[in-house]
Design a protein around this nucleic acid. Structure first.
Length: 1064
RNA sequence: GGGUCAGUAGCUCAACUAGGUAGAGCGCCACUCUGAUAAGGUGGAGGCUUGCGGUUCAAAUCCGCACUGACCCA
């Protein structure tokens, strides 16, 4: 296998391996009879490529699906695609250069729908391959598509259930209309942008009294539909007589707070307050709208229109009097309905005034603004005409300014079952919890009725057939629930097996019952309705019933937080309305993928990081690991190149750790064990068969710890913490400690029980680590796994069982001891470094001054491990409470204390103090020495005057350590003697020979002949004492003259050596 | 304009649920090691915990108010 972890190479090899062994199919089949886990994929919309957010989402889904499979579940993994709807229509319109519905009609509905389907299919293909490119394993051959007849039927069926439940209604509502798309759009499809609009103050002349009401609006085009003026009945209003600079006067009614601003806008130079009124005084006053003559169709005063009414929403803003048109605004409409005022909307679905618009008929509303402003001025009704910058709603797809108009639409009257919605909501468990309890509850409580009809083409046709001369009562309509039912009812021949439920096919179908002909309403469903039925649509229900009966509702869904308003909601609404139940039991709500600086990504602004860039740069596994290393619970993620690189680095460490024992195992023909959890027969040398050493037992115990932690984190939907735990184990415990410790064991020449134990330990640990990382990094774990198992286990790591904790391998006391030893080792290394003695040179002794009994216990039990790691001949322990008797203390004087105490003598005392040495932190002993030094006997010191400083003996360096449970100081005695010098020089030789072996590119087990020539008699003699060490460590069969070998001259601690190596 | 969530070292995050000296990894700098070698070891620098107020003996933590960002709503 390659020396280096190369993600691209790994991915390429693994892709073809997966293909060769049908890895995915085998993994699915492996769990076919297991307990089911019904996961439902929230369908991405097929209008573009996979961006970072989709990639994060699918990576999370893939990881949790893999995890559940490893936990033994038969997981439903059918991917879905949301393929209908206005966004695709507008993209196709753009491609075809269309500007309005007229173009579509000319092009032909059927052809247009065909184009939309092709567009959606193309994008679906792109998404499928995007998702597969980073290793997502779902049932790619069998995705659910919202355009398939069986899926569309799932929507029809659900809607007919809703109708049966009495929750379908036809009615007028004020809706947001895109005049270009000529359809209603949902409130959450409205995007707000800052625009400049007219800002006009208009006078409405009162009928029975002097003066006029002043209203303000940014939509002059709604004035023709004015029906009433709203005031706040509790507000304060004033009647003022305002004077222009020309001396003309006007009597105006305005909210008190607004008087100054309004008069200044109107260019008045002076005014007097004539009277104060409360809002309720104004109610019932009648006025004549200024454009009454231009719009004769506007209902007359007789209907109760053109009067002042109270409005809840009115504030003392602008004028405090609100122009209200129930034919347009939502609040206006609702208040108008309460007041039983007629609805007057002179604007058509295309935003053009109808004949009812009188003088303005035929004009597009926004284009009519200028005429209306001019007409208002001509009628002397304009108080001020300005412009204002404010945020205004636009169609999310075509960016056209929306208009509020009242049209007939089909609704699911979700407000009738609000209590049930709230109750059902509580039966599902959300991660994080606040998402449900704050965000989602707020939304559900305020949710209006669901307008499900759209006056468009590319969607699921609304399956409603209305009778001739229909009264408007929803009870009298036919709602078709299935293709079979359609075939049975239709006047025409319909083959349920082949019928395409799209427009225009269904438009031509009529139904005749009891002599009455029913025709289909021309609308299609709001595309949100499509995905709302996914939990049964994905099971092909009602066409097939078995899966639905067994699986529904979903065990788990996971999407980003925008779906609280989207899919989480639409499913709750549809599930409740159709089936009385919520379609999912558990929700994982993740965040948005933002740019590294925290800004949102935006394709249109070119601010994105594309997943394939990341894969090209660092690989799919590192990208996945990064995406899975951040919390999946509600918080947004800022993408990080650095962290992705770190993930690659960590995988490289795993790669290196994995590679390290390979050559040794191969040399010794190690018979690797593959446990049953990996599909092995448990043959070979397992850890139960091996003579484990302390460090092996420690590593295995740590592994149990990590497995327990990781599993708990996964169960809490905190897979990022599980990843942390596993990576820390790999880097800290496995790589930095275990591998370092076992290196010498592995290098031993002959097979030994010790080596075998290390092999068995590594085999088991690596297998389980690879399994623990498989959901994160499916490629590299697969490759490592296949090397670890050969042909013994399952064909793929993804079939393996999730590793479980083996209680018998837990050794908490040992873990605690080793934690202490490692801390002591770190301090010892520090001390060695301070003393300038490298690890190759042994030291005579290490003294550990223990501050806790736990340190003593750890050293008693495993002191040899520390001795080995610190390369010391002996470890001495100083018990807690005792002091190491070779330590001395000097003192540092605090002059702010000495000064006042000793006056003129303070300087002399200080010098004596600084020269003094005592064996304990004993203030009296110190005072005695100072007194002796100064030849006085009246020296009294207090602890405030001095600070004791520890002094180690010569050749000794110390460093402190501390863990959660232990503390102490490690002293390293680096005094040389011939014994340590001899070994030190010998190891210098060994290390250089190793380097030369490497330079010569010798095989690891190649034997050599070595000639050592030392240009210093004493050193030469010291080296010679360790010939056996040298020959063994360097695999030198013999020492002696070398004819024509690799020869190199070295400087070792000032001594010249010539080494010559030849292979034998 | 309103709601929800977030803001801690250059980066990613801990510590926040029960207030008690702010930690880790990575990156950076210096030194070191060398049959895992694009690895390993030791040390170091690096923080007004976004800001301003409040509660408290004590606030990253609790409470207000701002600011910044994300999403949702209008």
């Amino acid at each position: 296998m390659p020396d280096q972890y190369d993600p691209a190479g790994v991915e390429e090899r693994v892709f073809s391996y997966w293909e060769a062994v049908d890895a995915y199919e085998q993994t699915v089949d492996h769990r076919a009879d297991a307990e089911t886990f019904f996961f439902v994929d929230g369908p991405p919309y097929t209008s573009g490529a996979a961006h970072m957010g989709t990639t994060w989402n699918k990576t999370l889904k893939d990881a949790y699906i893999r995890y559940h499979r490893m936990q033994g579940y038969d997981v439903t993994d059918r991917p879905g695609y949301d393929m209908h709807g206005l966004p695709i229509e507008t993209k196709v319109e753009e491609q075809l250069g269309f500007e309005s519905k007229k173009d579509i009609q000319e092009f032909g509905e059927e052809a247009f729908i065909e184009e939309c389907k092709r567009f959606a299919d193309d994008n679906l293909d792109g998404l499928q391959s995007d998702f597969q490119s980073f290793g997502v394993w779902m049932d790619w051959d069998n995705p659910y598509k919202t355009v398939d007849p069986s899926y569309m039927e799932a929507a029809w069926w659900a809607f007919s259930e809703v109708h049966d439940n009495g929750l379908v209604e036809r009615g007028q509502r004020s809706i947001s209309q895109c005049p270009r798309c000529e359809t209603a759009i949902a409130n959450n499809e409205v995007e707000y942008e800052d625009v400049t609009d007219p800002s006009i103050y208009v006078r409405f002349d009162l009928d029975d009294r002097e003066g006029s009401l002043v209203v303000w609006t940014t939509t002059p085009w709604t004035i023709p539909a004015n029906q009433f003026v709203a005031v706040d009945e509790d507000g304060d209003y004033q009647q003022v007589r305002a004077t222009t600079p020309d001396g003309e006067t006007d009597v105006l009614y305005v909210a008190s707070e607004c008087v100054e601003d309004v008069l200044s806008a109107g260019g008045y130079s002076d005014h007097e307050v004539v009277a104060d009124h409360s809002g309720s005084d104004l109610i019932g006053w009648s006025y004549t709208p200024p454009l009454a003559d231009a719009v004769p169709a506007n209902p007359t005063d007789a209907d109760g229109t053109h009067e002042v009414y109270h409005g809840d929403w009115v504030e003392a803003d602008r004028t405090g009097l609100v122009h209200s048109a129930p034919g347009h605004g939502e609040e206006d409409f609702e208040r108008g309905a309460e007041l039983d005022l007629p609805v007057f909307c002179p604007v058509g679905e295309d935003g053009v005034y109808t004949d009812a618009g009188g003088k303005y008929a035929g004009a597009f509303v926004r284009d009519a603004n200028d005429d209306i402003i001019a007409d208002l001025e001509a009628r002397d009704a304009m108080l001020a005409s300005q412009t204002v910058e404010h945020s205004y709603g636009h169609c999310w797809r075509c960016d056209t300014g929306i208009i509020q108009i009242v049209t007939d639409q089909w609704f699911i009257t979700i407000t009738d079952v609000k209590d049930e919605l709230l109750a059902n909501m509580d039966t599902s468990e959300w991660h994080p919890e606040w998402a449900r309890d704050n965000r989602f509850r707020d939304f559900v409580e305020n949710a209006p009725d669901w307008n499900v009809s759209r006056q468009r083409y590319w969607g699921i046709p609304v399956p409603i057939w209305t009778p001739e001369d229909w009264s408007g009562d929803a009870e009298d309509v036919l709602v078709v629930g299935t293709r079979e039912e359609l075939a049975a009812l239709a006047d025409q021949d319909v083959d349920p097996a082949s019928v395409d439920l799209h427009k225009p096919t269904v438009d031509d179908i009529t139904i005749t019952e009891d002599g009455t002909e029913y025709t289909r309403v021309p609308d299609v469903f709001d595309v949100w309705l499509d995905s709302s039925v996914a939990s049964w649509g994905t099971l092909n229900y009602p066409e097939q019933e078995n899966d639905f009966d067994e699986l529904w509702p979903a065990d788990l869904i996971m999407e980003a937080h925008d779906q609280t308003r989207g899919w989480f909601w639409s499913q709750l609404g549809m599930g409740t309305a159709a089936l009385g139940d919520v379609p999912y039991e558990e929700v994982l709500m993740h965040g948005y993928a933002n740019m590294p600086d925290g800004r949102g990504m935006s394709k249109s602004k070119g601010i994105t990081i594309e997943p394939n860039e990341v894969i090209d740069e660092y690989g799919a596994d590192p990208m996945r690991m990064f995406l899975l290393s951040v919390t999946p619970q509600g918080d947004d993620m800022s993408f990080s190149w650095d962290e992705t690189e770190n993930m690659q680095r960590d995988l490289n460490i795993l790669w290196n750790v994995f590679r390290f024992p390979r050559p040794y195992m191969a040399l010794d023909d190690f018979d690797a064990n593959v446990p049953a959890a990996f599909g092995g027969d448990d043959a070979g040398v397992g850890i139960a068969d091996a003579d484990l050493e302390t460090v092996d037992e420690w590593l295995l115990s740590r592994l149990q710890h990590v497995k327990a932690d990781a599993t708990a984190h996964w169960e809490d939907f905190e897979q990022h913490r599980a990843l942390d735990a596993v990576l820390e184990f790999v880097v800290e415990d496995l790589s930095r400690y275990y591998v370092q410790v076992v290196r010498e064991r592995m290098w031993e020449d002959d097979a030994s029980a010790s080596k075998t134990a290390a092999y068995a330990t590594m085999q088991r640990v690596l297998l389980e680590v690879v399994a623990l990382l498989a959901p994160y990094a499916p490629f590299v774990t697969e490759e490592l796994y296949s090397h670890l198992t050969g042909d013994r286990g399952y064909d793929t790591v993804h079939m393996a069982d999730w590793p479980t904790v083996e209680e018998s391998l837990r050794a908490p006391a040992l873990e605690a001891d080793v934690a202490v030893l490692r801390a002591a080792e770190e301090a010892g290394s520090h001390a060695r470094q301070q003393a300038g003695r490298k690890l190759r040179w042994p030291v005579t002794r290490v003294v550990v001054d223990a501050a806790e009994d736990s340190v003593v216990d750890a050293l008693d039990a495993h002191g040899d491990l520390l001795a080995d790691r610190l390369n010391t001949r002996a470890v001495e322990v100083v018990e807690p409470g005792a002091a190491w008797d070779e330590l001395a203390y000097s003192a540092r004087a605090d002059m702010s204390e000495l000064g006042p105490a000793f006056g003129d003598d303070a300087g002399a005392v200080m010098n004596a103090l600084n020269d003094a040495h005592v064996t304990d932190r004993d203030i009296d002993a110190l005072a005695e020495q100072v007194a002796a030094d100064l030849g006085r006997d009246d020296i009294e010191l207090t602890t405030e005057m001095v600070e004791f400083v520890e002094e180690t003996p010569e050749h000794v360096a110390g460093a402190a350590f501390e863990t959660e449970t232990a503390a102490g100081t490690v002293y390293v005695d680096t005094e040389l003697n011939e014994d340590v010098e001899s070994e030190g020089y010998a190891r210098e030789v060994v290390r250089r020979v190793q380097e030369m072996r490497k330079e010569m590119d010798l095989a690891m087990d190649a034997e050599i002949r070595l000639d050592v020539l030392v240009f210093d008699e004493r050193v030469g003699e010291l080296v010679a004492r360790h010939e056996p060490l040298i020959t063994e460590e360097t695999r030198a069969r013999e020492l002696g003259e070398v004819e024509d070998g690799h020869r190199e001259e070295w400087d070792v601690e000032g001594t010249t050596m010539i080494l010559e190596v030849e292979a034998v």
